[in-house]
Design a protein around this nucleic acid. Structure first.
Lengths: 237, 237
DNA sequence: CGATACAGTTTGGTATACCAGTACGGTATC
DNA sequence: GATACCGTACTGGTATACCAAACTGTATCG
């Protein structure tokens, strides 16, 4: 596998694991020495991560995308639109075997031992279900949204009860699909996404102080066009 | 403006204007000499265009994304999902002034003299309307979809009657938004997108032979994992 | 004590040299 | 005449040198 791909994967993993803090400034030469690669693949990886929303440009340079409650809300609205449509198409097009495969996948991850597994299982469920729509673009949109949300979703599945609730709702959804009830499946998944988002935003608001202490900045909106007054300075870590 | 951005814009324009034929093979060094830039910005532009779906990797190299009827259908489904949701939010959130601004924009482009203006006006209408949802991700998704469709949409607005019909449907839609009738606006835009897509696919099927004569390849699906048998050869141009 | 001018350093942007892998075309052989 | 082989040329991938612009810190001046 090419070095660029490996570097992309490692950078991506570091961002999603919060090893690179949201809002942190990145320099191409810093990454070059940290990941022991030359600038060319570093830049390629950054450009790809930029297109996924995991890093952004800030002025001339790069930053790890901050955790942005406005963006999280927007992602929920996008997911509701896309996944509702996808599940309708899945009800129409998916084979029974495909649906049962997802139900089995759900049963296999029933325990959802910890946050990480909960996040992974949840993401897989939503992406795989969208794939059954037969529309690759819908599935890609869902995958992309889940990636953007990955850094915060663990907050929502920290307790065993939360993981149990998520599992139960997923179970209901796949049963509606199996029953070929498009209306119910669509309503269930929309409500599931909405509820998850509300709980997530509530957790974020509650934990904001603590997370800030761990170097995780939470902002309310994308930095707009104009810079704030005063000399823009390097983030003091 | 940086050279990379200019090169990206020029390459993008060349692809959308069909100056670079769909399916055509691109080499980094060929573009380097053709656009008088070095490989670094060429690669940056290609990577960005790749993330937009206008170019793809084929083996180790690059091709201009073929015109793919499966993708066009998928884009229509994505648009229906996203734009229906966006217009509901627009009805809820947009100010009367914002809605009137779009209505004015519609009136200003009333004649829609030629295909190009028709395509541009249509794209602007759908993107600007989505922006009123207040959700940047929904608007971005719509903009991206319109870009991907730009190479074929002119087929659908070639006649004055078609442009007139599009204008009329747009007018109906914005009036439903102005009347704050979310249900009607959503239904109208879904039906508009679906109808446009059906006419477009019909035109593509009818014109397939002629377009092929002009070097425009139309495929039925993305090239899957396996290559076709036989030595893959350079396109004979 | 404060602001400001200046110079050194660091940044991303660009050009380019080099590498390894692959496709292509010609040739020799059967 | 067809086919297998091999050398050449070209491809994208990588490393790196150089550039101009911007940032940082210091020294100077009011």
């Amino acid at each position: 596998m090419s070095q660029t791909v490996q570097l992309y994967d490692r950078l991506r993993a570091a961002i999603l694991a919060l090893d690179l803090a949201p809002g942190e400034r990145l320099t191409e030469r810093g990454l070059e020495s940290e990941f022991e690669a030359s600038r060319t693949p570093v830049r390629a990886a950054l450009m790809r991560l930029d297109s996924e929303g995991l890093v952004q440009r800030e002025g001339r340079g790069w930053i790890v995308s901050p955790i942005d409650t406005v963006e999280i809300g927007a992602l929920a609205e996008l997911r509701e639109a896309v996944e509702s449509a996808a599940i309708r198409l899945s009800v129409e097009r998916a084979s029974d075997a495909d649906v049962q495969a997802i139900a089995a996948l759900l049963d296999a991850t029933r325990p959802a031992r910890d946050e990480e597994q909960g996040v992974r299982a949840g993401g897989d469920f939503h992406v795989e279900l969208s794939r059954l729509s037969g529309n690759a673009l819908l599935a890609d949109a869902v995958r992309n949204a889940m990636t953007r949300l990955a850094r915060t979703r663990w907050l929502e599945v920290r307790t065993a009860e939360a993981r149990e609730q998520a599992w139960r709702e997923h179970r209901e959804i796949i049963e509606a699909v199996a029953a070929r009830d498009a209306e119910r499946a669509s309503a269930l998944i929309a409500s599931h996404i909405r509820g998850t988002n509300e709980r997530l935003l509530a957790f974020l608001a509650a934990e904001r102080q603590r997370l800030r202490g761990h170097g995780v900045a939470i902002v309310q909106a994308h930095t707009g066009g104009s810079q704030p007054s005063g000399r823009p300075r390097r983030m003091p870590q």
